[in-house]
């Protein structure tokens, strides 16, 4: 029984995630020869105090090269002050096939939204 199936970020088909073009790279059988380098996900912090946001992905032979490539590819126009990289294969993703049981149950639980409180007049914005 295959209860625990590891889903990679790149495994999620394009029609569900928008990341479809990455699919081939996560499948070693589709790599082209020796020159194929692993895929890395890049996270950029645009300024101090903000969180790192996913910026995209790129190929690199090792972590140091991935950071330098990210610097050259994603921060050419002052987009960032900090870079994280993580090899795509180390990212686990939810399985699109589970979306029914994962996400749909939240649809009819309107009471989870904080919209049922009477706000005091003094509170201008919430």
């Amino acid at each position: 029984m295959d209860y625990i199936k590891k889903i990679y970020y790149g495994d999620i088909p394009g029609e569900n995630s928008g990341g479809g073009e990455l699919k081939g790279f996560s499948d070693p059988s589709l790599e082209s020869g020796d020159e194929a380098w692993p895929l890395w996900e890049v996270f950029i912090r645009s300024k101090q105090g903000l969180d790192h946001k996913h910026a995209g992905s790129l190929h690199a032979a090792d972590a140091a090269m991935a950071i330098e490539n990210a610097r050259d590819v994603y921060t050419r126009r002052q987009e960032g002050v900090s870079i994280w990289v993580v090899e795509s294969k180390d990212i686990h993703a939810s399985n699109p096939d589970d979306s029914g049981s994962f996400y749909e149950p939240a649809e009819d639980k309107i009471y989870r939204y904080p919209g049922f409180y009477d706000l005091p007049d003094e509170v201008k914005q919430m």
Binding site: L58, H59, A60, N69, V73
Partner: peptide
């Protein structure tokens, strides 16, 4: 040799 290094 590869897109990323081309940019570098």
């Amino acid at each position: 040799p590869i897109l990323e290094q081309d940019i570098a």
